[in-house]
């Protein structure tokens, strides 16, 4: 319409251009630059021929997969039970509350709990297992990452369950389905959208939690995020870092397509 009407949105469109479009283009551009700033495909050939990089990528995906799976297994029943409680909004608030505490403080707490002379080891010594190395292992990394991601999985599943029309469950029971059938054929399929957005919200960050791999995984666990941080801030090889970044972006798009596809097909009346 008139030009004055659009004036107010100029900063927003500037932001879209400068902080959304430009960074994506720049990281792709940078991924084709060698360490001296010349144009090259070397980063990509390096990446795809080096066993270290490929192994790291596969490991990162496996870690993220395990974290997502455990989070889902813990969160689904929790969201289900949560939906049945009386003051559910209050309980949901209490689930969300820990996410407002800084992630690094939570990681720091686990350093105390898991360390060699920490509380868990004291407990182990007390019941006679003896001291174990817990911090800086795969277990500690997966445990802490799962701990941090649980609320982000519970929220979307809870929302999906809450949106569900309760008369559908009554209908299913009236038509003679037992509770297992009702769950399998009615409740679970209807909550699938929540599960998908939960998986999205957990899997993608799990690929890139570099601070946890540093603090809890003790550099033993290397994810895509750790590799990017290493290349950008430690070895200063921005080209290679960007290449891994592009791979991470592609992985992210893949996940989003895989978990977002059905929404359109089956989304006639879900919203």
């Amino acid at each position: 319409m008139t030009s004055t009407k659009r004036m107010y949105a100029v900063p927003y469109f500037l932001w879209l251009l400068l902080f959304v479009a430009a960074p994506v283009l720049l990281i792709v551009y940078q991924s084709f630059l060698g360490i001296n700033g010349q144009f090259t495909f070397a980063n990509y050939t390096n990446y795809f021929t080096s066993a270290t990089y490929l192994e790291m990528t596969v490991n990162s995906v496996i870690y993220a997969f395990i974290i997502t799976l455990i989070t889902l297994v813990i969160s689904y029943p929790a969201a289900y039970v949560l939906n049945k409680t009386k003051h559910k909004q209050l309980w949901l608030m209490l689930i969300i509350l820990p996410t407002w505490v800084n992630l690094l403080l939570k990681a720091y707490a686990f350093i105390g709990i898991f360390s060699t002379h920490g509380s868990l080891n004291q407990f182990f010594a007390f019941i006679g297992i003896g001291q174990q190395q817990i911090l800086f292992t795969d277990f500690s990394f997966i445990f802490v990452a799962t701990y941090i991601e649980i609320p982000f999985m519970i929220m979307p599943i809870f929302n999906a369950l809450e949106e569900m029309n309760p008369s559908l469950i009554s209908a299913s029971r009236d038509l003679g389905a037992n509770s297992v059938d009702t769950f399998r054929r009615v409740i679970f399929p209807l909550s699938l959208n929540g599960v998908k957005s939960g998986v999205q919200a957990v899997f993608i960050p799990s690929l890139s939690l570099f601070m946890l791999t540093r603090l809890i995984g003790g550099n033993r666990v290397i994810t895509l995020g750790t590799a990017i941080e290493e290349h950008f801030l430690v070895t200063q090889n921005w080209g290679m870092g960007s290449t891994i970044g592009v791979i991470l972006i592609l992985a992210m798009l893949l996940i989003m397509v895989a978990t977002g596809e059905k929404k359109r097909k089956g989304g006639e009346k879900t919203r």
Binding site: P23, I204, S208, G225
Partner: peptide, 24 residues
Amino acid sequence: AILSLNNILMVSPDVIIGASFLIL
């Protein structure tokens, strides 16, 4: 289209945002 552009930064991993802003 604008809305999907808007949401890019919501779904991007922090590391990507950080690295690309650093380049910028």
